[in-house]
Design a protein around this nucleic acid. Structure first.
Length: 118
DNA sequence: GCCTTGACGGCAA
DNA sequence: GTTGCCGCCAAGG
């Protein structure tokens, strides 16, 4: 049978699904954990096409400075901001989270096999 | 079939 | 410290 090679979107979904409650990560960290440190943009492209049926915590993904760059994709940045605030995620500004205390690195999760084979 | 945009990031000037 | 450009890959006009 087909080995079911995990596609790029599948890997992104898996990482996002493993983001702990009350924590956030960045597009760059996700891309880097997938072995494509320069494809952070692709992560955002994948998340934009994320089916809502997956119920992925895509609101826990922010850019490298903690800004809710994808807030408008939830209808309004306030929606994303409210979701994060509901998880007690500290905010530095109205639309910027404090990565210093809630940043989560996918590579730090032992459950994730983010090791890319040569 | 070509050009522009896009939920980004790193580096140079 | 700020501003701008390039890279990456795909979809839309």
């Amino acid at each position: 049978m087909s080995p079911a090679i995990p596609t790029f979107p599948d890997r992104v979904y898996r990482v996002v699904a493993h983001i702990p409650h009350g924590r956030v990560t960045t597009y760059g960290l996700i891309a880097r954990s997938l072995g494509a440190p320069r494809s952070a943009r692709m992560v955002g492209w994948v998340l934009r096409r994320t089916p809502p049926e997956m119920n992925l915590p895509c609101h826990r993904v922010v850019n490298r400075i903690g800004l809710l760059s994808g807030g408008w994709h939830f209808g309004h940045p306030d929606i994303m901001r409210d979701l994060l605030r509901d998880e007690s995620i500290p905010f530095r500004d109205d639309y910027q989270v404090d990565l210093s205390t809630c940043l989560w690195n996918p590579a730090d999760d032992p459950d994730l096999d983010s090791r890319h084979v040569p």
